[in-house]
């Protein structure tokens, strides 16, 4: 098997995650889909690391994880306060940008 299949898998997971972001209304699920996309990227980085034979790709994946952790903390806090004020976790309810 060619390790390039890992990249195809990563692309597939990324696309599924992106479509999920667009389709789902529940902010938490949307957030999960974002995490899925980040993980797909990490998989690609790891595969590239193997391809190039150095560890830089893994370092980037590592940073991605850290940033994702920070993002989850803030994002979930936002969702919680949103739910607190609007009693709903639907992203469509926050359509205040409309005229």
């Amino acid at each position: 098997m060619n390790p390039v299949n890992y990249l195809y898998l990563a692309a597939l997971l990324f696309t599924i995650g992106a479509t999920g972001v667009l389709i789902r209304r529940n902010a938490i699920v949307v957030f999960m889909c974002v995490e899925l996309m980040l993980n797909a990227c990490n998989l690609a980085f790891v595969a590239f690391s193997r391809m190039h034979g150095n560890l830089d790709g893994q370092i980037i994946a590592f940073f991605t994880m850290v940033v994702a952790a920070a993002e989850v903390v803030v994002g979930l806090a936002i969702i919680v306060s949103l739910f607190r004020s609007r009693h709903s976790a639907s992203v469509d309810d926050a359509s205040l940008m409309k005229l």
Partner: peptide, 11 residues
């Protein structure tokens, strides 16, 4: 598991 398989043990 895929990470491990790709040699990224730590990750």
């Amino acid at each position: 598991i895929f990470y491990l398989a790709n040699g990224a043990y730590f990750l």
